[in-house]
Design a protein around this nucleic acid. Structure first.
Length: 283
DNA sequence: GCTTGCGCCTGAATGC
DNA sequence: TGCATTCAGGCGCAAG
């Protein structure tokens, strides 16, 4: 599942492989993958033909390829999206959605089994696409202000995990790293945000940055055949996970079996001892 | 204005 | 065995 570290691995891979490449043609094999590009596939391809990829940028889980220092090709990988750089004669992937033919004969390919991902052209989006105006800075950006995030977090009327997953508060965090950060900070996912002390809020935000830094160093988290890198390689952070996916296995801090709950229609993994459920408030 | 819940999507895994 | 159901989950939007 691509979260910030996996998207950053992809960004770095694109930077290594296709910076200054020229797009000569584009095939949209599934229009759903450009559903955010309202003018449609013909317009999409026309705006890319002849353009050069002059920079690869990222905020949170969003990625954009700058076109001649002006417009941008915006991408979100969703659940299962991959951006692969392949020789032109490589066989099509089963879930190939968009093909970008490059001038040197190689292809940039958007492959996405579940089609939750999407691409679009952002006019004038080189620095920061307008489409991302609602996406907060991620913890690795210069504009990230931990103190401001702490105050925003504590002003919300929700629980801490939902807040961490809210891209308008802090971007780049998905289900896996939210669970890992909460385990690290010894906080339960259902903890009401308004009851967080400043030190606790800082602790969980520091944990978010720490776990994502470690994941990036490991090349990201990969499960099964959902590859991460542009050449199809997998990251190996999955073996370092402390909570996510470890139901029934002992907590590495205290030995208590990790439990799995359904929460917000997704799985949440906690150590019941290190992360006790908050006491219900008195009504 | 803010918070919450749903639908989108495919394939693997599970249940009967 | 085979068909049906569940699960994975980020995002945008509608409803509350």
């Amino acid at each position: 599942m691509p979260e910030l570290p996996e998207v950053e691995v992809v960004r770095q891979g694109l930077e290594r492989h296709i910076l200054q490449s020229k797009v000569v043609d584009v095939d949209v094999l599934n229009p759903r993958s450009i559903r955010r590009h309202i003018p449609g596939a013909t317009d999409f391809a026309g705006r890319l033909r002849g353009r050069t990829l002059t920079a690869i940028r990222r905020r949170g889980k969003f990625l954009w390829l700058v076109l001649n220092d002006e417009d941008a090709l915006l991408a979100h990988l969703g659940m299962s999206g991959q951006l692969l750089v392949q020789p032109g004669d490589a066989p099509d992937e089963l879930h190939l959605r968009i093909r970008f033919r490059l001038a040197d004969g190689r292809e940039l390919r958007f492959v996405d089994q579940r089609t939750f991902g999407a691409m679009a052209i952002s006019e004038g989006g080189a620095i920061l696409p307008d489409e991302l105006s609602h996406v907060a800075p991620d913890p690795f950006e210069a504009g990230y202000d931990a103190g401001a995030v702490v105050e925003d977090l504590r002003s919300r009327r929700t629980n801490v995990k939902r807040a961490l997953l809210d891209q308008s508060l802090i971007s780049g965090v998905g289900n896996i790293y939210a669970d890992e950060a909460l385990w690290e900070a010894k906080l339960h996912y259902a903890r009401p945000t308004e009851t967080l002390r400043r030190t606790e809020a800082h602790r969980v935000l520091d944990a978010v940055r720490g776990v994502m830094t470690a994941a990036l160093a490991a090349g990201g988290t990969s499960f099964d055949a959902l590859y991460v890198d542009v050449d199809g390689g997998s990251g190996y952070f999955a073996r370092s996970l402390q909570a996510y996916g470890r139901e029934g296995e002992p907590c590495t801090r205290c030995g208590t079996p990790i439990r799995r709950d359904r929460f917000m229609n997704r799985s949440s993994f906690t150590c019941p001892r290190c992360q006790p459920r908050p006491r219900r408030p008195h009504w």
